[in-house]
């Protein structure tokens, strides 16, 4: 891999709306890195403002959804005079192709980055399907 980016750039993209949420709050797509190791897939997601209590991860069938809610802060007596980023929740879903061992998924959040370790299951044995003559 020859990806090398010297300048760090921020980019926050709003998530496309599938179904409307009941709360009026913006939803952003977190930037992610997904690394495949021999025995696991590791997901890193940038979710500033999210801690281990406000993160929400689900794996249903083969769809992995990561989400996080962020408290919108208002500072009394201050006016927001310049804004480069918006505050809102995070949500993003991925289709996981590998067989994942659901019991051993680990998640941790540190400094606003979610790290998710999805261990792969033992390689499944090829199964031969017999065709019966009717």
């Amino acid at each position: 891999m020859d990806i090398e980016r010297k300048d760090v750039q921020a980019q926050k993209t709003e998530a496309p709306v599938d179904a409307e949420r009941t709360r009026h709050k913006r939803v952003y797509l977190p930037n992610v890195d997904i690394v495949e190791k021999k025995d696991a897939i590791i997901v890193f997601a940038d979710m500033p403002g999210v801690d281990e209590k406000s993160v929400n991860i689900t794996l249903e069938k083969n769809v992995l959804t990561i989400g996080g809610s962020v408290e919108v802060e208002h500072y009394k007596g201050y006016d927001l005079s310049f804004a480069e980023y918006g505050i809102g929740d995070y949500e993003r879903a991925f289709t996981v192709s590998e067989a994942i061992d659901r019991e051993k998924i680990e998640a941790s959040v540190s400094n606003g980055v979610l790290k998710l370790v999805l261990p792969k299951t033992e390689p499944m044995k090829p199964k031969k399907i017999e065709v019966r003559a009717s």
């Binding site: 921020a10 940038d46 500033p48 007596g77 006016d79 927001l80 480069e84 400094n111 980055v113």
Partner: peptide
Amino acid sequence: TVPYSQDFPAMNVWISENDALITAEMPGI
């Protein structure tokens, strides 16, 4: 899709009469 500046970190600036408050999103540092 990219309504914000491309500078890192993205900052929000709050100003009152006697001080300023700057918040910057810089996860994982």
